[in-house]
Design a protein around this nucleic acid. Sequence first.
DNA 1: AGCACGCCGACT
DNA 2: GTCGGCGTGCTC
Length: 725
Amino acid sequence: MSGLLVSVAVPVPLYTAFDYRVPDGLVLHPGMRVRLPFGRRELTGVVLRSGVEPDPAAPDGHYRELLQALDPAPLLTDDALALAQWIADYYRHPIGEVVAAMLPVALRSDEPARIRHEPAYALTDAGRAALATLPARSLRLRVLLQQLADQGALLRAAIAAPAAVLRRALDAHWVVETVAAVAAPVPVPATQPALTADQAAAVAALQAAPGFGVHLLHGVTGSGKTEVYLRAIAEALAAGRQVLVLVPEIGLTPQLLQRVRERFGPVAVAGSHSGLSDAERAQVWLRAATGELAIVVGTRSAVLLPLPRLGLVIVDEEHDVSFKQQDGLRYSARDVAVLRAQRAGAPVLLGSATPSLETLQHAVNGRYQWLRLPRRVRQVPPPQLQLLDVRGLHLQDGLSAPLSAAIGRHLADGGQVLLFVNRRGYAPTLLCHDCGWSAQCRHCDSRMTWHRGRGRLICHHCGARQAAPRACPQCQSRQLLALGQGTERVEEALRERFPGARVERFDSDRLRSLRQLDALLRDTRDGLVNILVGTQMLAKGHDFAGLTLVGIVDADQALYSVDFRALERMGQLLTQVAGRAGRADRPGEVLVQTHQPEHPALRRLVTQGYDGLAELLLTERQIAGLPPYAYLAMLRAEARVEADAIGFLQAALAQLPAVDGVQALGPVPAPMERRAGRYRAQLLLQSPDRSSLHRVLKPWTLELDAIPGARGVRWSLDVDPIDLY
DNA sequence: AGCACGCCGACT
DNA sequence: GTCGGCGTGCTC
Ligand SMILES: [Zn+2]
Ligand SMILES: [Zn+2]
């Protein structure tokens, strides 16, 4: 037995790998899973390195022996392990947890990694004979046998016959189940539609720049970004490469997945909300690892899939905040995608109508190739945003008279109307008119939202709920006022005001499942719904051909926000929602209710669109020293005792290595200090360049666990945070 | 994070 | 007398 050790990534929140002795006769390679003793526990880890020299100073018996190898060959490639190491370093997260995050849940235990090939069905000789002799009346059986005779072995999904017919054929031994791998259907594009001039230029630019490169596909809604994606995919497939398509949410925007399927046939889905079981996810993971899957469409976590032949990455709606994980390993799937593509020598296509300022900045300075699709495919003029100054106007349930009148006008003309409201529930505040009491959450520094339909008060920050009182709990007055408005209230008001119209609410309260959403979307497309009231849910993807008016009930929230990204998000959201309006015969009208019609950001958005706003915001960010002109890291802490959170951060600040240019801001209490019964505080680091920031973070994070009192404090470090609270 | 050990308060 | 509270130490 050699005296050399292996270094193993163990799934525990510790910033180190652990070295083990190898049992006699076992040959281990990096990437193989192993069972190991860990303290008093037994865990599954992944070998990172073999041939590790033992520390001569280590006492006898320091190194324990691995129990067994779980895989005959590495499950993770060297490339995957290097990616894990990069992610662990960059996001300052324990290597064992990063490696675990790269594996599907089913393979984090001691389960064997076996591909279960979907059975295929093949015609037997007896079946071939039967085909000649079967009576004509056994039509469906004949069709089945004929299909197999013509096309060879087929997967179940490719067989047209119903289950009962296939069963009969199997029972008669005319057809057999076979495990022989059916040649994966080579996705051959069906006929491709002609490109517009803009699309053709974008496709040509992509073709002219093979290999790694980041391309921003900046196209207005309806400009045909998807067709450019599909051409790029076809190109990568033709070169025998795998394609990864990242989308914000599979469920809410099935259009892209559907278009890819229409063009290329079966496509694997991955990530959250993919509707797959743990076992199915493991199968997708394993088949991606073999290179068998040509195209994978997935959400954030799909960027961690093993893709040995990766030849193209597409990030659709690249500005979407859901690409950044908001807990645990806080990685940005968009940024990891760029890194992966670089390592694979593949192009990345970042698509958006409203690119993030980070991406836009790279395009401006030429690091990213800027591909623009400024025109809609169908020659519909883009909708024009119009500010509706509501100062001094009476607002009934949040709606001004001019907005109501516009709604009536559009309905009378047979148009559909969309009202965008950024809040769920009936009203965000319930206030006693007599004594000033308002419904506060017991666990948070926040008011509870009145959900009138359900007769409840619900805290949107911690989920706490209670029955809505009929009288003031403090003074028994019945004068309870609903302040502000959510979707429920606007919906109700519109029902009263337009009794003949069908009003439907689109939010997560009303639509508990995708089926319900689909049903309502279908009714909307069929013209059965006249007014749509909804949250962000309506901002994405869906095209409503009959929609002629979009109303933004309250654009002001973002204008008062302390979050430095609030205006960027407002611009993205309003532009997206506005993009829903307009139909073939006339441009859409978009009315934005505001109390601040002179606000420079709002003015810029209206007069010059998102691109103009982005230019303004970039200038402001540069002056303020904020991303993309600076790099941030946020250390957050929360504790049951108020002083503990701040105390921990003060201790952390005292440990902060001094590096030129890196500034600490704080610690300060979080904007909402108490949430879900815990007190929260934060310490922000700001740096003019990435490398200085990381020179600080690397030694610093190693010290944080050792801070006295760190035990009772939950803390996390967020590199490149998107929310500053 | 687990899971131990360890040393002080109110129970059968 | 012990059952159990959570402080703190460690995991190759
Ligand atoms: Zn009262
Ligand atoms: Zn709450």
